[in-house]
């Protein structure tokens, strides 16, 4: 296994205001070829962690270092959690996919081969006939596939997916995981999901995020891992009972 680190997070604390800390003292390294499943309760800070990695949210404390010096040079593909997007916006499906190729160039024009690449990806996801449709014509699950195309079109080194299986039917979910396993040959993947049943057969390792981050260096979701996953529910019912934190093994 290639142990070249792509991203290194050191003692990072983050939140949307200094008086409400969402992530506390996170230490986390993403290596080349990693496929990490990130699980945790709603509001546990999974999306927040991704935003910190993507440079969308400045950490309150600690530091993040990337393989290269500045964030812009690490090629990251991102599929955001769906509930933030406006489906009425007048934009064509293919144009959404192409946005993944902007590469920080404000004058960007897309060439024929680039457009062809977007069409090929859409075909792979079974959406070629929608390429010139407005996004409002797509269902939620189809939209998720479009966002997956957008995330991978630039061949990123790291692919970050925030609950890509939302709205996706069981058939395509299987296909989606197959695509991800294939993509993992070329890129590291961070996958946030609540689907703990299926991911253990897909991801290589697991991290549980609930204010703190517990990294589990295996894909076996044992009772121990589930206990960590469930700890906030215990906290709610029984007050501040100290809970077990898994060691790295």
């Amino acid at each position: 296994m290639d142990r070249t680190p792509i991203i290194n997070i050191k003692n990072v604390s983050a939140g949307y205001s200094p008086d409400k800390i969402i992530l506390k003292n996170i230490n986390f390294t993403v290596y080349k070829n990693d496929f990490i499943g990130i699980i945790g309760p709603n509001g546990g800070g999974k999306s927040t962690l991704l935003k910190v990695i993507l440079g969308l949210l400045k950490p309150l404390n600690g530091e993040i270092s990337y393989k290269e010096k500045s964030y812009n040079k690490v090629n990251i593909g991102y599929l955001p959690q769906i509930n933030t997007i406006d489906k009425d916006f007048p934009i064509k499906v293919i144009d959404v996919v192409l946005s993944g190729l902007m590469n920080g160039n404000p004058f960007k024009r897309f060439s024929r081969p680039e457009k062809q690449k977007a069409i090929d990806l859409l075909s792979k996801m079974g959406l070629e006939k929608y390429q010139n449709n407005p996004i409002s014509k797509l269902s939620g699950g189809q939209m998720q596939r479009v966002y997956l195309c957008r995330a991978i079109i630039n061949n990123p080194e790291l692919l970050i997916l925030d609950e890509p299986n939302t709205y996706v039917d069981k058939n395509f979910e299987k296909e989606l995981y197959q695509h991800l396993i294939e993509l993992n040959q070329k890129m590291a993947i961070l996958l946030v999901t609540h689907d703990i049943g299926t991911i253990s057969s897909v991801v290589k390792t697991i991290a549980c995020v609930n204010e703190k981050l517990h990294y589990h260096n295996s894909n076996i979701i044992s009772e121990e891992v589930l206990k960590t996953y469930n700890c906030p529910f215990e906290l709610i019912t029984h007050g501040h009972i100290p809970h077990r934190v898994l060691d790295n093994h």
Partner: peptide, 17 residues
């Protein structure tokens, strides 16, 4: 393109640098 994508999805466009 830049204007279109910022209007459509500002956060994602920010991740593009």
């Amino acid at each position: 393109r830049l204007i279109l994508y910022i209007a459509f999805d500002q956060e994602y466009t920010k991740t593009l640098g």
